[in-house]
């Protein structure tokens, strides 16, 4: 039967096949990448690896400080990015007139933020947070002593927050748009003010959207390396960061360091694979959760 069809419509078969093959190539690469990293890293994927410090000049041991640093960084980042993102999304859906110049400018700015290369955020973090704000803080509060005017986890997190801001805004905006207009009208018709309506009806209805946005932002922030290259990430620290002015280790940076800057790459190969697997699993599971949540929100809109 296939042969028959092939004869009758060889061109169609070819072109449709071409599109199918393209999709399959992409999926195959994705799967190969996953499988290779899982196979390469699974022997390292132990509780001990996750919970112990690197030893022997980082050729042995685990990745606990990197895991911890990444977690701490994304928490601080979320604390900064999520409120900002939610508020901006509220402005765009609730306050701004759809086609006003301001709303369009803000939308353009958000999309621009989303496409600016992440290394530029790193430069900005260095030029703004460290050299401008940090140094300014040092001369204002520290009597010129160097404390804030150098890379640390706070500046890295804030830099990352800026990078992930559009992620939050877009997800929350999408969720806010699924709240039916009728509910807003019902609230307003009961004599609620706009802010009361937002706080009591709109926001509670969009928790899942805020969650999605936060998860996506965390996943993005956990994986990005370029913005923290010179705003706070460290090669190796014997202690965990104890204050905002400390540097931190991060999973992504660890991978980068181990693969390109390490003295004996081959010796640390298992650690590299293990770290990559951990980072991959982390971002992957977060993404899967976010994708499921997002599909649910979309379905709600259709329903």
């Amino acid at each position: 039967m296939i042969l028959k069809r092939f004869k009758r419509d060889a061109k169609g078969f070819f072109f449709e096949g071409l599109t199918l093959v393209s999709a399959l190539i992409i999926i195959t690469i994705l799967i190969v990448m996953l499988v290779v990293i899982i196979i390469g890293g699974k022997s390292m994927f132990t509780w001990e690896f996750l919970t112990s410090f690197p030893t022997e000049g980082m050729t042995q041991g685990g990745i606990f400080p990197a895991l911890f640093g990444t977690a701490l960084m994304v928490i601080i980042m979320s604390i900064a990015a999520v409120p900002f993102g939610v508020i901006t999304a509220i402005y765009l859906t609730e306050y701004a007139k759809e086609n006003s110049v301001i709303a369009r400018s803000i939308r353009f700015a958000v999309r621009t933020l989303a496409v600016i290369p992440s290394i530029i955020f790193g430069l900005f973090g260095l030029g703004f947070f460290i050299k401008f704000v940090g140094t300014g803080m040092d001369s204002a509060f520290m009597g010129g002593q160097l404390k804030w005017g150098q890379p640390n986890i706070l500046w890295a997190s804030l830099t990352m927050a800026l990078l992930t801001l559009p992620v939050v805004i877009v997800s929350v905006e999408e969720a806010l748009k699924t709240i039916p207009r009728e509910l807003r009208e019902a609230s307003l018709a009961l004599g609620a003010t706009k802010w009361q309506t937002i706080r009591r009806v709109v926001l509670p209805g969009s928790y899942s959207g805020i969650m999605t946005g936060t998860i996506l932002a965390v996943s993005r922030g956990a994986g990005e390396v370029a913005p923290i290259l010179f705003t706070g990430a460290a090669y190796y620290l014997a202690t965990l960061p104890g204050s905002l002015s400390d540097q931190f280790m991060s999973l992504g940076y660890h991978i980068y360091i181990m693969t390109t800057q390490s003295a004996n790459v081959d010796q640390t190969l298992p650690i590299q694979f293990g770290t990559t697997l951990v980072l991959l699993l982390l971002t992957f599971s977060l993404n899967i959760v976010a994708i499921i949540l997002r599909y649910r929100i979309r379905r709600r809109r259709i329903a």
Partner: peptide, 14 residues
């Protein structure tokens, strides 16, 4: 709107 209440076509409970 507190003085002039409204009931909509499609019921819209929160």
């Amino acid at each position: 709107r507190k003085k002039v209440g409204m009931v909509f076509q499609k019921s819209n409970p929160f």
